[in-house]
Each structure stands twice: as structure tokens, then as C-alpha cells.
Design a protein around this nucleic acid. Sequence first.
DNA 1: CAATATACTGTTATATTATAACACTTTGAA
DNA 2: TTCAAAGTGTTATAATATAACAGTATATTG
Lengths: 148, 148
Amino acid sequence: MIMKVSQSNKLNRAKRFCETNKYRFTEPRERVLSLLLSRHEPLGAYQILKLLSSKQAKIKPPTVYRAIDFWKKNGFIHRIESMNAYIACCEHKHHQNFCIFICNQCNKVSELTLETLSQSITNIIKDKSIVITRSTTELFGSCFECNR
Amino acid sequence: MIMKVSQSNKLNRAKRFCETNKYRFTEPRERVLSLLLSRHEPLGAYQILKLLSSKQAKIKPPTVYRAIDFWKKNGFIHRIESMNAYIACCEHKHHQNFCIFICNQCNKVSELTLETLSQSITNIIKDKSIVITRSTTELFGSCFECNR
DNA sequence: CAATATACTGTTATATTATAACACTTTGAA
DNA sequence: TTCAAAGTGTTATAATATAACAGTATATTG
């Protein structure tokens, strides 16, 4: 399987992450993350299920959901709530304040890596008695191509 | 049934909205919206189903989902994506750029009516070739009470 | 090295959330 | 009064997600 460098880098980073933190980089985990890294679009859990299953070896939902939960918890994938779908996180460090853009017309989804977003949200929350630990923002509209 | 004024006001506004736009203010629509207005917490579709059903008259899922879809489309309720739940929109005019805060500890949910949010998002999106028509932001953290 | 605790997987079953499809009813306008 | 459109009722089923429990792999400790 041919991979872009950045993609295999990300997989390696995930592997190192597991080693460092004494988690296991198991086959289901590897396969789920690889798949999400190789696609640049959100996949539903049952799409992943189908893509990872062969006629001989059918995977079951919990196998996929466990891997998804693991990577999600550890900042390697995002759940797109409005789509019940998952994408590989494009930059690990932005995982806490995550923003995606969904084009209403072509349905393309892109993650926006916005340094300013979490800053903005902090500014918006003037009431310092609330502490924000995580945010997910889903923007809908039309993209450059659909817009011309 | 005793209601706060603002609550019945909101129901009236919804009624007027229907009259103005030639939509019907039918019984399922009224009951679903009333219920959501009377609670200050998110309700799942099947919770609504249960609350609106009596032993004699059991409501079916499509009845609830149709009412939910109607009010959602028309800006009277929000879907909280991360919870598969629905709440009455606290201010009609903010419906396009909607932000809620969910306390991780007590699970209380509050809608934030932030004049500045949509502005901020516009500022963040420097690339003017993208047009945002709607946004939903879900913030997670700990609230004032849980924070002390 | 064996015992054992822990993390993880495999499997079956089922819960939860949402929609398709079609017959019937209400409403307003021609 | 009939016709079209909007809306509801009902049955069935799709799509998404999790509980529960037995079994396996791995690292650790005695």
C-alpha cells in the first residue's frame, strides 16, 4: 500500500504515542487509524466496519467502536457530531478546540486548524467562572469551489 | 398547566410564526414545542415520546421527529449534536450561530447567547471564499457551581 | 519461571436513534 | 365540490452504538 509520507508519519506518531504511554498498538487500532488517515473524508463507524471486513474475516461493531474511542480519547481522531462520522485529526495539538467546515453543496469536509479559535472562545466567555476544557465547532456553508 | 410568562410568549410567537408563514400549528407541533419550552434541559426524541404518551394514546417516533424537524428547520429548537438531544432555542435570532455549554460534572446544559460569536467566527475565517451560513459550537467544561 | 493482574479482543445480543413508505385526514383555494 | 398541498398515523426497518461476558496477550512481580 502506497502512502503519503505525512500519513505514515502520523501513524508512526500514533505508534510512538502508544509506546510512550504503555498502550498497545494493536491490529484493530492500527487498521482503523490507518484507514482514517488514508481517506481525507469522514467515515461512519459502519463504513469503517465494511472497509475493514473481508468475506473471510468479518469485523464486529465493538471492534471498530473500541478503536474509535481509543483514538478519539487520545486526540488522534475527531467525531463529527452532526454526521455521526469520524476523521483523523489533522493536528494533534488542536484536538481540544476543534473546528470543521462542511460544505452544504458538495459535502466536502475540512478541518480548520485555527490558532485563534480557542483564543476567541476564551474571549467570548467573559465569565471566568466557567472553564472550557474542550470545544467542537461545526461550520456549514459553501466552499470556494461551490461558491464561484 | 402553570407556565412562566416568557414561556407562553415563546409559544405564542411560534403560533404567530405559523400563521404568518401559512404553516399549521398542529397538536403534535404544539405539544413537542411546549414540552421543550417547559423544561430547561435537553430532551432526547424518545424521552419526548415517552413524556407525550399516555397509556391510552401512544405516540409513534415519526410524530415526534416530524415536529422536531419542523421547529428545528424554523429556528425554534436546536439539536445538541453531541447528545442526540433537543432544546428550545432561547433566542430566535441567534439560531444561525448557536453555542451551548455542557458541564462535564453536573451535566447541566446552557445556551450561550453570544452576539460576538458569529462575529468571531467570521473573523477567524479570513478566507472570504468560504461563506458560513450556520454554525454550531459545543463547549465542554465545568460550570460556576462545579468549579468552586 | 509461574502466577497473576491488567489491558485488550471476539462474539452475541440488544439498546438507542432515526427514517422510509404508504394510507388517511385536514385545510384552503380554485 | 373537488382538488392540491400540507400534515398525521401507522407499520416496518435502517443506522448508530453499547452491554456483557468469555477468552487472549502482555507486563510485572514473587
